[in-house]
Design a protein around this nucleic acid. Structure first.
Lengths: 343, 343
DNA sequence: TATATATATTTACGCGCGCTAAATTTTAAT
DNA sequence: ATTAAAATTTAGCGCGCGTAAATATATATA
């Protein structure tokens, strides 16, 4: 790092003994210049500590290196985890990820898309709210930018979707629960903010029917993203009134299950599959904390890594062949059954 | 929204019947133009759906409206929560927050600061790693931009610091634990990544001495940010070997406590302050899940809201009087004791 | 109504870099 | 050594907006 502060690319180029356009090419793609000049530039970079002005770079460019990443709620560990992986994958590919959380509000999702539009992203990875998303806004966005959806699907929007096969994953859990004890009832929110909830309910019903069992669904009242609170309050209400028709409860997601575990504990009910247990509780998502609940939560692990990587590679695939492919792809990964002590 | 897509401010200005520089002034500060022209512009905005090009806007500007927000790890609910509040406070003030997570890595903190520098932020809010942070990089950043630290302090860096008074908060907990049962031992990581850990240990020692008790510290081996895992593994080891000299364990933070609770459950130990309980466990931070652990965790609540708001207002205060104030301020808020069932 | 002051407009320039086309040099292939 | 191909240089325009100075217009004060 030298003392004289470099003002612009022109100056850096002449200090490096290279012309400005060549330096410009280097910053856009280091492999597009001859190895010997690349070496000269990189040597000079180590001496001089220059980085191009982002705003000038992006202003007059056909397409930037920005990748927008929008998730419904970073406070939810599922999204913070998958967001992290997506972010790192973008950086590895030489892009600049811009991670935005909608903080649980579909309106802010719309705002986030608006913000992103002004950043001229090369592409966008969106985990939408689903039916609660501003469909027109997402659709308009889809027409303007390469868009890949993940986690939650929306009909005919985005050039690709990547997520978990809820049919497979829920069936896996139902099968296990039926085989190892009483068939499960299903616990979910009446007005789920999570769009996968509907798929999971449907998958539960179908799976139960395949097993010759009657599906039983219990719906919790409550709005918003405070799933643990809802699971705990409504779980306590249902448990104490002995509303459940079976001793096995499959929760729509781990956060509800964590609330349910807390409710069971409060009522002095022993949760687990061992002898002397009153109740089995299972979840879905392999939430980072589900390993440390009491008892540890039996759940379905979504393949975060695969979903994040595939979503990113789908997007980059689209970016490379700038032809807009007509065929929308949908990729789902299997869930894995994580057997712990709660069920 | 009209059909003809507006290309630039020139076009929008003439459509609105106003000159471009006046429109430019409006976007920089709506209150800086006459009410009647502001009304004309806003009416036109509703018709035409134009927004200025971010890159062109920021390129030739003395100072942007960007506020950088850097946290050590968004996967930690504490930071995702405080990051969320900071973000919203910035938006309310008409700024564009850019939230960056260092994903637990001090190297990425350095990269994030580098990224931010190229975005010419009006100011930066940084929750540093503390001693693990690249001190030179942070210091250099401090000289270039208005910088406010939060959560973790660094000596003489940043123009202000906002956080929790660990001395007060830990003392509050120690006092409660001593008063209500056996005096606590202290459980922490040997090489804590969280910089507040050292302050808490010190606070624990001093508080115990004030209470005429001998401090006892137990340190867990383990690196990284997987605190629950470390708390669980090391907790199980210590509990099963009956290493603890008291039945009361104060954990350096809630995530370690959650791991410890899990270990106690696995060993069949009953946690709580009631009769028939074997162990009391307390934490620190009022982690979002601490309310739903089994039993619910007694802990210290940091005042997220106050810390976030004060950090933001400190920064905006600095931005307004562009004179660089010589006096560095340090603000700490008291923690609140949250009594639940675990201790 | 005349004068002083605040606000708008006009004019003009520059920011730092992307991008292009033609001229030139370097490298690789014969 | 000759030739073709690839890389670099030179030269120059343009992006969309910030900003400053000069000028014109509107509002407040006398």
């Amino acid at each position: 790092m030298a003392q004289p502060k470099i003002r612009n690319m022109e100056e850096f180029a002449s200090l490096s003994g290279i012309s400005r356009p060549t330096v410009s090419k280097y910053f856009n793609d280091p492999d597009s210049v001859r190895a010997s000049t690349r070496a000269k530039i990189e040597a000079s970079l180590k001496k001089h500590d220059y980085q191009p002005n982002v705003f000038a770079m992006n202003q007059n460019r056909r397409t930037t290196k920005n990748i927008g990443v929008v998730v419904p709620n970073l406070a939810d560990p599922f999204f913070s985890e998958i967001g992290r992986r997506v972010e790192l994958a973008c950086i590895d590919a030489g892009y600049s990820p811009i991670l935005l959380s909608s903080h649980g509000s579909p309106e802010m999702e719309r705002d986030n898309l608006k913000t992103l539009r002004s950043l001229k992203p090369a592409g966008v990875l969106l985990a939408p709210f689903g039916r609660m998303s501003d469909e027109a806004a997402v659709q308009a966005f889809d027409e303007e930018f390469p868009l890949v959806l993940f986690d939650a699907n929306m009909a005919k929007v985005g050039q690709a979707f990547v997520g978990t096969d809820n049919g497979q994953s829920v069936d896996l859990m139902v099968e296990y629960l039926c085989r190892s004890g009483e068939p499960p009832c299903f616990f979910e929110m009446r007005n789920p903010t999570n769009p996968n909830a509907n798929k999971r309910r449907q998958a539960y019903i179908e799976s139960m029917e395949r097993h010759g069992q009657e599906p039983r669904i219990f719906q919790a009242e409550g709005e918003g993203w405070n799933f643990e609170e809802i699971g705990s309050t409504e779980g306590a209400r249902l448990l104490s009134s002995k509303a459940f028709s079976t001793n096995t409860i499959l929760c729509s997601n781990d956060r509800l299950a964590i609330g349910m575990l807390s409710a069971a504990y409060g009522l002095g009910l022993r949760v687990g599959h061992g002898t002397g247990c009153d109740l089995r509780i299972a979840g879905h998502d392999d939430h980072p904390f589900s390993r440390y609940t009491c008892p540890p939560l039996t759940t379905i692990a979504q393949d975060y890594e695969a979903i994040a990587n595939r979503a990113v590679s789908e997007l980059f695939g689209i970016l490379e062949d700038d032809e807009r492919l007509s065929d929308r792809t949908e990729t789902t990964f299997d869930g894995r059954l994580i057997m712990r002590d709660s069920a």
